[in-house]
Design a protein around this nucleic acid. Structure first.
Length: 493
RNA sequence: GGCGGCGUACCCAAGUGGCUAAGGGGGCGGUCUGCAAAACCGCUAUUCUCCGGUUCGAAUCCGGACGCCGCCUCCA
């Protein structure tokens, strides 16, 4: 198996620290507002990786942090007149629900910063003891970037270079060097604060990830995930802290960064307003369609939604752009669903359950092989999907044959193909239960439709047909009642 | 300005030196059908932004140009 490691900028063989086990830390959420599609993509990507690794037999430990104290939370809590703590709590819960709705498997732990203050303080103390950090007069603690000689290697940056951008950074008189960053921030009035040896204050932005990844996964864990936008400064700083404290290199074996979501080439972000929340997205299309959309693109490539029509608010433009790109994904998922449902019907109808049994045929074995090859190449989901679509094409041919003659050999082949499609798409996180639920949701609407059809038959005095509709519904336990103001129905208990 | 990425058909998108440049969507033609839908078959890139170079052989490697994007201390 090969993965693209951002640290080395190369495809590398994936060899976990411990054979058969994978430890994975994913940069999670800062719960200050609702999740949007951009966040969703990142979580969907690592969900896919986890599912695949598990399917390949690895025992995966998946940790995803919750940065529940930070500047944005404090600012937003003040705006809304609630406590930062309550705000974080609310959006953490909401985001987890959104992830559930997207079919993302929950991480094993969601460690929160506020629950790891002692670990963070210990870590900062260790960095101070080793000379990698210093305390300022106001009681803040900064990381001494120049003391860590690998600083800048992950993101390919030279801190000594006084670039235009760096020259623009306002020089903080408390810092020894402009590139140094806060490990501990002395609290300003009205901010949440904890006791520490240096001041009443709170952790800096990056330290939580170092403290919590080390606590739950130990030094030298396997996969560190997150979106590419976090590469600098977040991951660079995190790496420096973790390795400086642990004296281990590498502390993180593979840095796997996913691409961002853009609208007309611009990053989807809260501040630009060009976003769609997860809830809005799921109202537009079911989760499998979003999965399809994202899995059709390599995880590292940006996913761009664009529309030539640039009128309206950023949000309206975003919505239009997203709708346009949804068409192929929707159709693709429909192709899958139609084939699987038809196979289900044929297998059920002929009494060959095929359930649970995986009938291996040369075809499904070859498909499985090609699927693994695709995925082993840095989680190549587009190629993996192509393999599954090939199988669906073959499956459709078998379906056509079975429709001609109910042959046991053909049915076995069909059962095998169906099981394989479900299994492999399941590895990518698609779920087939949705179709069942959606069908159930449809029932009331269908009954209303039948009532309208019967109404038309009655108007045209085709009473035999009208009665046929009523008696057939009655046989299903649906009782029609004609009243002055229209027809109602109830289900017999 | 620095670092990184991208540019493949009408759209999306694989491809990591050598079988006919995957796959999905769309379009067109056909089979099937009372009509549809679905499905199946065929067509839709002699060429990968452009220009050089390396090589027996390049979408792939190297150099350059152009265009787009991300990061450069809020960000998934």
């Amino acid at each position: 198996m090969k993965v693209y490691n951002t640290y080395t900028k190369r495809l590398e063989d994936f060899t976990p620290r411990e054979a058969g086990k994978v430890s994975m830390y994913v940069c999670g959420m800062t719960p200050y507002d609702s999740m949007h599609l951009g966040h969703a993509r990142a979580f969907l990507v690592y969900d896919m990786m986890r599912r695949y690794l598990e399917w390949r037999g690895f025992e995966v430990t998946h940790i995803q942090n919750v940065t529940d104290v930070d500047d944005k939370i404090i600012r937003r809590a003040h705006e809304l007149g609630v406590s930062p703590c309550a705000l974080a709590e609310r959006f953490t819960a909401e985001s987890l629900e959104d992830c559930d709705a997207l079919g993302i498997v929950r991480a094993h732990h969601y460690p929160r910063v506020t629950e790891h203050i002692p670990e963070i303080i210990d870590l900062i103390q260790r960095l101070l003891d080793k000379g990698f950090a210093y305390v300022t007069p106001s009681g803040s603690v900064y990381f001494r970037v120049r003391a860590f000689d690998r600083y800048g290697q992950l993101s390919g940056r030279d801190v000594e270079d006084l670039t235009d951008a760096q020259a623009r950074i306002e020089a903080d008189p408390e810092k020894e060097f402009r590139g140094d960053f806060a490990l501990w921030k002395a609290a300003k009035p009205g901010e949440p604060a904890w006791d520490s040896p240096w001041s009443q204050g709170r952790p800096g932005w990056h330290i939580e990830c170092s403290a919590m990844s080390t606590k739950y996964l130990g030094a030298g864990f396997d996969i560190h995930g997150g979106a590419i936008e976090l590469l600098f400064p977040h991951h660079e700083n995190e790496l420096a802290q973790t390795e400086a404290a642990a004296d281990v290199h590498p502390c993180i074996r593979y840095w796997l960064h996913c691409g961002i979501v853009t609208i007309n080439g611009q990053k989807m972000s809260k501040s630009l307003g060009n976003f769609l929340t997860v809830k809005e997205a799921l109202a537009i299309a079911p989760r499998n369609v979003w999965r399809m959309l994202l899995m059709m693109t390599d995880y590292r490539t940006p996913v761009d939604f664009s529309t030539p029509d640039r009128t309206g608010s950023p949000q309206e433009i975003a919505r239009r752009a997203v709708m346009a790109k949804l068409v192929p994904a929707r159709s693709a998922w429909e192709r899958v669903q139609i084939a699987v449902q038809r196979a289900d019907e044929l297998i059920r109808e002929t009494g060959k359950s095929g359930n649970g049994e995986t009938v291996n045929t040369p075809l499904t074995q070859a498909v499985r092989q090609r699927f693994i090859e695709a995925m082993d190449n840095d989680f190549g989901t587009p190629a993996a999907l192509a393999v599954v679509f090939d199988l669906i094409g073959e499956m459709n041919k078998v379906i056509a044959q079975v429709e001609e003659r109910r042959d046991d050999t053909l049915l076995a082949a069909l059962a095998g193909a169906r099981a394989t499609v479900k299994e492999l798409l399941g590895v990518l996180g698609f779920s087939f239960e949705e179709a069942v639920t959606r069908r159930a949701d449809l029932a009331p609407q269908l009954i209303d439709l039948l009532i309208r059809v019967r109404q038309r038959a009655r108007q045209e005095k085709q009473y035999a047909l009208a009665d046929y509709v009523r008696s057939e519904l009655a046989a299903l336990g649906v009782v029609l009642e004609d009243r002055k103001d229209g027809t109602t129905w109830r289900q017999k208990t």
